[in-house]
Structure formats: structure tokens, C-alpha cells
Nucleic acid binder design. Structure first.
Lengths: 342, 342
DNA sequence: CCGTGCTGAGAGAGCGCTCTCCCGGCCGTT
DNA sequence: AACGGCCGGGAGAGCGCTCTCTCAGCACGG
């Protein structure tokens, strides 16, 4: 570390000034090809790599982007969702030579720490996932001028933040219509949390397809986890034993639902048809294989990253495409995947 | 960002020199309490937060630690393993005010990029998970003087690197002994990849318990994934249809194994007893609930982080405990969890 | 009374880079 | 032939921080 070559050393070796080396390293056009070649060689010979901090100090660019996930209640983490988003984000950032700083918030205290870290320009921008209503972070970051993109529509009532979401309403509608089209008449749903937009939107879609005639005892709240899927199904079966079709707002819950139905002696899809949402890997392996709404979580991560990169001017104009300036909202399409459970 | 207060401004407001403010901010003892209080107030009033790059430039400390995962073949990612490690690492780093930089390598090219990034002091240390034999990264980092801790024993033949592993040999031995103790006589195993130490060690443990009498056609290689578990079980059943007990080297594969056995019309545990390894959340939910070897992946992440922090002098001596200097190797205990599949 | 030893605080020199100036040389113009 | 314009390259001023060095001030002993 002590012996690491500096710009100065490279300049010396190449017989030019520091400024010229800097120009070459940063790809400036206005350098004589002969000098450029000399510098290139000196850089290679010395194994020169620019010192990030020194550069950041003057450019005010960190080449760092934070991915913040509210991990509270382990909700995010049981979900393959998290992993896929990270993979997508990671891939896109790698291409832009930007590093990913991962920050998990388990408590209010963590949140404060994260806020203190993000605000003063330690990162060039932030990606937020798993937002809940009442979350002040996006607003604070916006106020502080930190570029932000969230995964999923911000909860109702929060400020308008650029975001990338899946078409949850349409997905839920497709799922529910499928239940109806296959002859189910006493349809119910297990919903996601009411403080997350994915929960709200999927219920909206369900209502849009099923109409307002669905009695309240066939609507049961869950928490997007496997365990909550089991519990919600049990409660629902108790109150509405004649239910013959269920739209379950996440695959993890749907898997729990299958377990609960099996224990209750109901056969799927004969007695009760089940449709999930997310199309996680385990859905296809379930017994029976789960009919579900497919979404592209990996792509969501990629688009989030691209959108943020565009906002901070890190994507060449040609590449940025529709995300360059205007777009502050991208809704990705979903599709129904019919397997055996409905 | 432009208006962010600097040390200079704080000094001015507090009526002291920059050096004194720096001392207070960094918790030096040798400052007059009166001045200290003045500085504290000025810091609070201006909302001063030190500029990380400027500090890094002189201290050569980045307060950044990289977590590198070889994501190739998506093996790492299907696994809840990854998520748990991250959670553990993240928690421990948060306490030390160190940020986590996540780097996923999908290709050789990524690997080169990562190496270029890590070597020149962009991070204070690196955590490596999912190592394969032939992986040159740990050695290169060691040579470059970058502190490294790996998750899992480095593959045979690689250089000795500080690491944190679970006791895979003992775990596999326990699992296999359980099969024997419950009366299974024609025992087989589905192994992990031969280029990963977890795969090798679990096979060693199996052999240690089962003896050398196990015929080769009851040993079938898998890749730690669900799909490979299904395939390996099918191949094994074809060659050794009379098998009555299986030690499967990962839960994901064991779940696949259950699926394959069900399809083949074998009942578990009556016809074939199955023991997995990892105790992922889904193991308890499986049908039948999976008997498996429990490991503390979350703790593994924590210990890895602590070990690295100790090596770079970021853990107070009292806390560092056994990891301070000597320990370059920690083996975490595992235990057998008996459920319904064996 | 002065000299010695200490403690606490300020002055100032960088850390390695970028970027704005400015200047020298070359072209084209009048 | 003289001059303006332009372009490539060098000099040098920071970016915000840390840390060594130095010195002022005080208590103490001789």
C-alpha cells in the first residue's frame, strides 16, 4: 500500500505533467496520441490504479451506491425476492464501475445510522427496497438531495419518489379472473400487509376482478411469509369452510397455504384452487405445482439500477434510453403461469 | 452538498483550531473539557459530518469491507445460506461503523474487475464466500496484503487462509450414524461438488460413519441445488433400488430428493430414510419434515466479520477475545435435528 | 530566581487527485 | 510580415482532513 504508484510517479516516468496523465487516465480527447501512448505504457508498467479517495475528494463522486433494505421482521429475507433484486442491481452497477454498498436496517437505530451515512455525500445515490408507509427515509434523502429510486411503488401518502414496480394490480386481476374462468364461485384471498404497496395493490386487483361481492370472511391478511400463509389459511378455513378458490398474494404464503389445506384434508385443486404471486423457484417444485403470477425480480433490480445511474449521469446517453430524464416511474409487466394448483 | 460544513467552519465557530476540532471528533483524551464542549456544540449546530474521502486520503482507512461471492452457476443464490451470511456480516459491521461492499462474480471477467478493485486499498479487508478449488483470488489478495477471511475451509491445495467453517465432517458423521442407529443397512449418500470443501468434508464424515463398505453405486454426486438433488436421487435409485437410507449433503438437495422419492413411489421414512444438512427454514416445512444437521449460518457471518475486524484492528481488545491475533480458523459446532424423514 | 518537565493547543505540511488557468506554438488571415 | 485565434500541455491551487512539530503556559525543584 505504501509503495503504490501515484499520478506523479507515472508522470515522471512518462516524461509529462501530472495533468496530462490525469487526462489520459480519464479519457480526455485532447491529448496527443504519442503522449497518450507513453502514458499508457507508464501506467501499465507501474501498475497504476487511481486513488479513489483523492479523486472523490475533488470530484465529489464516490462511485458508490447504497442498497437499503428494511430487514425488520425478517420479511424481506425469507423471500428470494431480495436475492434476485441484488443480483440484478449488482450486474448493472458492475457494468458502470460503481460499487454496491449494502445496508440492512433491523431497528430504528440502524435507520438513524443509515440516514447519517447516506446524507452527507458518502454515496452517489440510494436504492430503497421493502418500504413501509410511514417510512421517513425516502423523504429525508430527497430533501438532502440524494438521488433515490425505490423498488415498488411508495406507500400511499408518501412523497412521490422515482420507482420501479411490477404491475401488481393487473397480476392480481389475472390470477383472480383465472379462478373465476375455471369455475370457482366462492373465491377468497390472503392479502399482504396493508402498509406495503404490493399488499395493497394485489388486493385492489383481486377486488377489481372478483367484484365487491366477496364477503369479508373470505379475505384474510397475511405478512408475505410462509408461516403467515399457514396461519391465515387456517383462520380463513374456519370462518369460510366453503371457499373453493384462493388468490394468495405471495408464493411464500401460497406454499404455506398448500400446507394448511393439506392438513385440513382439502385437495388442491379439486376442493380449493390456489393461485400465488411472484413465481419463486419453489413454486414450480411445490406439490401440486403452483399456478402463480410471474414477475421479473431480477429485471426489476436491473431497471432500478439503470434508472438511478441515469439520474446521476453515469449512463451514456445512448444507453440510458427512456430512463434518462423524464421517467420517474417504470411498471414492469407480469403474466400468469398456469400449473397444477388452479 | 456544496454547503456542507467543513472542519474549518466548525473550528471557526467554536473559536479553536482545526486540529482541536479533529481531536474532539476523533475522541482524543487530551482536550480541555471546556473546549471539547464548545466544539461539540458547534458540530451539533452546523450538523457537521466528517468527509470520508478526505479522512481516507490521509489515514488510508476506508471503513469499507468487501463481501465477495462467486455467484457462478447460481449455486450460491438458490441457497438461503447467502442471505443468512449477509445478515450476520451486516450486523457485525454495522456495530463497528464499517460499510459492506457487495461484489458478485458471475464470470472470469468479473473476477478480474473485483481483483483490480480490491487490491489497491479501496477496502480495508475482504470476506470471501463460496470458494472453489483453483480460485486464485484469496492468494492474490493475501499477496497484496489485503486482509482476508473466507467462509468455509479453503479447498484442499489452496493456501492457508483465515476462515470460519462449520464442522462438516462431524455433522455428516452424526447424520450417518443416526441412519445406522435407526436400523438402516443399505445406506447411500448424495454428495456436494468435489471442488468445494463443504462437499468434500461431508463425504468424509459420511465415510467415517458408514465405513468403506458402501458400494460406489450408492454414492451419487450433486451440486447443492434442488434440481441436482432430484436428478441425483433418480440416478441413484436406478442403480441401487434397494437403498434404505440416504444422507444428502444439503437441504436443498434433500428437498429435491424427497420429491424424487415421492415420484418413484417410495415412502419416507418407511422405505427410505433421508437426512439433510444445513437446516434451512424450508426443512421444517417439508413433507415429511426433514431430519437434518443444523448449522448457524447467521453466526458464521458474524464470526467472519469479527475475525476480519480484529485483524484490521477495528475491534476493541476486550471484544475481540479469541479472534484478536492467533485465531485464523474457527470451526462452529453443528447438531442433528431429528424430525420425520429419518 | 531560573531551569526543567509536562500538558494542551495551534501551525502547517502534506495525502493524491482534478481542473482552471495560462502560455507557447502553430495555423490562417489581412 | 504582423497579428488574432486555437489547441495541446504545464503550473499550481486547492478538495477536507490528519498528524507531527512546535510552542505557550504552568507547576515544580534546585
Amino acid at each position: 500500500m505504501s509503495g503504490r504508484p501515484t499520478l506523479e510517479r507515472v508522470a515522471e516516468r512518462a516524461g509529462v505533467s501530472r495533468a496530462t496523465v490525469s487526462r489520459v487516465v480519464n479519457g480526455a480527447e485532447t491529448v496527443d496520441p504519442v503522449l497518450r501512448e507513453k502514458v499508457r505504457r507508464a501506467v501499465a508498467e507501474l501498475g497504476y490504479v487511481p486513488n479513489r479517495s483523492a479523486r472523490t475528494l475533488v470530484t465529489r463522486r464516490t462511485d458508490l451506491i447504497a442498497l437499503v433494505a428494511a430487514e425488520s421482521e425478517q420479511r424481506v429475507f425469507g423471500d428470494p425476492f431480495f436475492t434476485d433484486i441484488i443480483r440484478g442491481v449488482s450486474q448493472e452497477l458492475a457494468g458502470a464501475d460503481v460499487q454496491l454498498v449494502l445496508m440492512l436496517a433491523k431497528s430504528e437505530q440502524d435507520y438513524t445510522r443509515i440516514e447519517r451515512y447516506l446524507v452527507p455525500g458518502h454515496v452517489d445515490g440510494a436504492l430503497l427496497i421493502s418500504q413501509h408507509s410511514g417510512d421517513a427515509l425516502p423523504g429525508r434523502l430527497l430533501d438532502a438531495g440524494v438521488p433515490v429510486v425505490t423498488g415498488g411503488r411508495p406507500p400511499d401518502g408518501s412523497r412521490d419518489v422515482p420507482h420501479v414496480d411490477h404491475d401488481n394490480v393487473t397480476g392480481a386481476e389475472l390470477a383472480t379472473r383465472h379462478l373465476i374462468a375455471t369455475g370457482r364461485v366462492r373465491i377468497g384471498t390472503i392479502t399482504g400487509p396493508a402498509d406495503m404497496s404490493a399488499g395493497v395493490d394485489r388486493l385492489t386487483g383481486f377486488r377489481r376482478a372478483a367484484g365487491d361481492t366477496v364477503p369479508a370472511d373470505r379475505i384474510e391478511p397475511g405478512e408475505f411469509t410462509h408461516a403467515s400463509g399457514v396461519a391465515a389459511t387456517e383462520r380463513l378455513l374456519e370462518r369460510a369452510p366453503d371457499v373453493d378458490g384462493l388468490f394468495v398474494a405471495s408464493d411464500l404464503m401460497a406454499l404455506g397455504c398448500l400446507t394448511a389445506l393439506r392438513r385440513a384434508g382439502r385437495s388442491v385443486p379439486d376442493d380449493v384452487a390456489v393461485v400465488g404471486f411472484d413465481d419463486i423457484a419453489a413454486a414450480a417444485e411445490a406439490e401440486p405445482a403452483l399456478t402463480t403470477v410471474h414477475q421479473e425480480t431480477f429485471d426489476q433490480g436491473r431497471v432500478m439500477a439503470r434508472m438511478l445511474l441515469a439520474r446521476i449521469g453515469r449512463i451514456p446517453a445512448t444507453d440510458a434510453g427512456r430512463f434518462t430524464e423524464g421517467a420517474s416511474r417504470v411498471i414492469l409487466p407480469v403474466r400468469l403461469v398456469i400449473r397444477d394448483s388452479a
